[in-house]
Design a protein around this nucleic acid. Structure first.
Length: 282
DNA sequence: AGGGTGACCTGTCGGC
DNA sequence: TGCCGACAGGTCACCC
């Protein structure tokens, strides 16, 4: 895989954006030695280790679990979450840290930098994945939607036990991880299911359709993120590539791309939800 | 135990 | 132009 010398990852951190970010620097940073590390303003949680203690360690690999990136070191690992506004860049260390750059990992292969204006993101150190600090963040997470473990029937059975609206069950991430506010609306549109429908009331055929829709919408976004990344030499690529073809997200009042009826917005759990009343049945 | 709410923090946008 | 409220891609801690 050919990587541009320097790039900025997308700041729209649902699973696809996190995965695209991972793919963009994982191979480039593998094997790098940490030369210097520094923190800016406090993030959501403390690192849990004197930051200088990272110096001299080696980066082995970068994995992803849900919306967390796991940076494996030769000793311990870093759990990186992008929160609502975080993005990672990796490349030659050109500029000094800016106002919203809150974590720098300067390595023999380049500088990994976390930029996060709202600071809902985090970098947490753990000795291993059994470390209580890692378990607290990862332990309750549901299955990975793009892996074989995401079984349609198990998904259906999980839905049957939940009384909450399906939109909120998806966002909770306990059945399946990685579906954020945008893709939850999009997947429910594809499946023709009203976001307010109680999860337990969804029939098996509709649950299977939703299972497919989740995979489809996430896989497509990863693929498109990847293709956007290729010509990332112009920084324009940062603009929300997914929204160019969102079916419902952020389209309140606009015509449904399928039936031309007006897209509606509602609020569930203090988050915006968008749906087509005609195409999506309760 | 599941389900609902508040909290964290900064930036941007629209209305008056 | 300035001020103010609403809203933004997440999720944990806390209540009942």
């Amino acid at each position: 895989m050919i990587m541009p010398a320097s790039y900025k990852a997308f700041a729209m951190p649902e699973l696809p954006e996190v995965e695209v970010t991972r793919l963009s620097f994982a191979s480039a940073i593998a094997g790098a030695r940490i030369l210097h590390a520094s923190l800016g303003k406090p993030l959501r949680w403390p690192l849990g280790l004197e930051v200088q203690a990272l110096v001299g360690r080696q980066v082995r690999a970068v994995r992803r679990r849900g919306k967390y990136l796991l940076i494996d070191l030769d000793h311990g690992l870093l759990l990186v979450h992008l929160g609502m506004s975080g993005s990672l860049s990796f490349g030659p260390a050109v500029a000094a840290a800016g106002k919203h750059d809150h974590f720098d990992l300067n390595t023999s292969h380049g500088l990994l930098r976390l930029h996060d204006p709202r600071r809902f993101g985090a970098v947490v150190y753990a000795e291993d994945q059994q470390d209580p600090r890692a378990v607290k963040l990862l332990g309750h997470l549901g299955v990975e939607p793009l892996e074989d473990g995401f079984d349609p029937l198990v998904f259906f059975q999980g839905l049957k036990k939940r009384q909450s609206p399906i939109k909120q069950v998806l966002l909770a991430g306990e059945l399946v991880v990685g579906v954020g506010n945008i893709y939850a609306s999009e997947a429910l549109f594809l499946a023709g299911i009203r976001p307010t429908t109680r999860a337990a009331n969804i029939s098996q055929p509709r649950a299977l359709r939703l299972h497919q829709a989740i995979r489809q919408v996430l896989a497509r976004a990863v693929a498109q993120g990847g293709s956007s990344l290729r010509d990332f030499s112009n920084a324009q690529g940062q603009n929300g590539y997914f929204q160019l073809e969102a079916m419902v997200y952020d389209r309140a009042g606009e015509p449904c791309r399928s039936c031309s009826g007006a897209i509606k917005r509602l609020v569930q759990g203090q988050r915006s939800t968008f749906y087509c009343p005609r195409c999506q049945k309760p």
